[in-house]
């Protein structure tokens, strides 16, 4: 039970942590000042959620590890974030398409998790819903602008959708270890939120006059710690300082 809860919480934490790390790469590089601030804020919210999950994961594990240990001293194969979260930022259209997919996902995920029998998980989720509601509004408005903007912005948004769609199915996969937690009302039934996610994302794609990719081969692997090549580079950058100076204090 507690190992399953640890794994579950760890995966929630990893998902937010890796996405936050990607988003924070835009800090100081945003297309204009307000967007730079917006993405930095969204990265910060996402990192805060990651911290809450990882603190709880460390507590559930009970082996004396901290949230920082989990973030900085695990290797690639020990991370369980969905593949889409580690994909490089690309241009702004790609970052926003990835964000639409993840923001809408998080919205429905946290709405369900807020009902979890585990009060810590439900508390973190209730907190996150308020923030994610703003994030959805932000990324959805960009998708609409790119899709209905110039030929160039439309094409870039469509290319991003075509490239990232292969990572979407994995978001709704449930590992065997979660079955018990599901039965106990602790974990979220991802199949239930898939329909809501699809309806919402379809609507946003339609409003942006973009085309939903079809017959896409769906990638998977993160449930087993198998990642795309990008995660290694991301971790190298994120972890090198604490690994070089493990006793350094802020």
């Amino acid at each position: 039970m507690s190992n399953a809860l640890f794994q579950y919480t760890l995966r929630l934490g990893d998902s937010s942590l890796i996405l936050a790390q990607r988003l924070s790469e835009w800090t100081g590089h945003g297309p204009f000042l307000e967007e730079d601030l917006a993405l930095t804020n969204i990265a910060l919210d996402t990192l805060g959620t990651a911290k809450s999950f990882l603190e709880y994961a460390a507590q559930v594990e009970g082996k004396g590890r901290t949230d920082d240990d989990l973030a900085f001293f695990r290797n690639e194969r020990e991370f369980f974030n969905p593949l889409i979260t580690e994909q490089p930022n690309g241009d702004y259209a790609k970052t926003m398409v990835r964000q639409v997919i993840m923001d809408v996902y998080h919205l429905y995920l946290y709405k369900e998790l807020a009902k979890s029998k585990d009060t810590t998980l439900s508390g973190i989720a209730q907190k996150a819903i308020k923030e994610v509601t703003y994030h959805v509004r932000h990324s959805a408005s960009w998708l609409e602008r790119f899709g209905n903007g110039t030929d160039e912005s439309h094409q870039r948004a469509q290319d991003a959708l075509n490239e990232l769609w292969q990572y979407t199915q994995e978001l709704f996969e449930t590992p065997g270890s979660e079955k018990e937690l599901l039965a106990q009302g602790v974990a979220v039934n991802l199949q239930d939120i898939q329909a809501k996610w699809e309806t919402h994302v379809d609507e946003l794609i339609r409003k942006a006059n973009l085309k939903k990719p079809e017959n896409v081969f769906m990638q998977r692997g993160s449930l087993d710690g198998i990642h795309t090549e990008h995660l290694g580079y991301l971790l190298a950058e994120m972890q090198h300082l604490p690994r070089m100076h493990p006793t350094a204090k802020w």
Binding site: E34, L37, Y134
Partner: peptide, 13 residues
């Protein structure tokens, strides 16, 4: 409204 996100997480511009 200039931006939904401002100088800190709790503020808009």
């Amino acid at each position: 409204l200039i931006s939904q996100f401002g100088s800190t997480a709790c503020k808009a511009l």
